[in-house]
Design a protein around this nucleic acid. Structure first.
Lengths: 112, 112
DNA sequence: TTTTCATGCTAAGTATTCCTTAGTATCGTG
DNA sequence: CACGATACTAAGGAATACTTAGCATGAAAA
């Protein structure tokens, strides 16, 4: 069986996804922190520590970042690039499209 | 010391998703912990604290649980049920199916 | 050029949270 | 009744994050 190789990375997944999404949004580390509700005097240091992989933001904080950056929270935990891309795309769909897509995937699974 | 009471869910997302996936797999809290590499004498207490929402497992630990329970790690962070279902289904697809599905979603986004 | 400011970044100590230990309670079964 | 398995919890020591107080660089204003 083929198993996804779990390797220890120089920069942790959460750190790099966070940076990736922030750069896409085109705002500074400090600005992102403040928009997420972090105190303005600590926002810069904290966000930088997150992006450097020095510390790990808790779930609630990541949910706020997700809201600010307009990405699904799950994106920050996606080690696999294909999964990450799917998450970004799926989040943009309407509720109806999401339901239809799920029905579509179920058919794929059955037919295998 | 007084602390601001944050509107808190009865049971946090990670906690309930973890239990949901474990029950689906049909194993005990202790067994899941041990299979994920936690010391056998602490596995029961730790996993229980996770499922009660008393403590939060770090990302690496959740990746191990995901591997044991055969669900994508992102599932544990999915607050939305539709997203959660999609994650479970998507994880079961072949690489080729995943690519095709992504191409399909991209068309949906364009046509909107 | 010089000053100023935004940005990214870091060390260190305090604050906060988790992990381990040592249990309790309950249920089903031999 | 034991006995084991399971779920669960309090408390303290261990580990990690958050805050403070900065430094370095580059760009833009003066």
């Amino acid at each position: 069986m083929t198993r996804t190789q779990i390797t220890t990375q120089a920069v942790p997944v959460i750190a790099s996804r966070l940076r990736e999404a922030r750069l896409l949004a085109g705002i500074s580390q400090k600005a992102m922190g403040i928009l997420a509700g972090i105190d303005e005097f600590t926002a810069s240091a904290r966000v930088n520590q997150y992006e450097q992989g020095k510390h790990v933001p808790d779930f609630l904080t990541l949910e706020k970042f997700a809201s600010v950056l307009n990405v699904p929270t799950e994106f920050f935990y996606a080690r696999d690039d294909v999964m990450a891309e799917m998450l970004l795309l799926f989040a943009q769909l309407t509720q109806k499209q999401k339901s239809q897509l799920i029905a579509h995937i179920k058919k794929l699974n059955i037919d295998r």
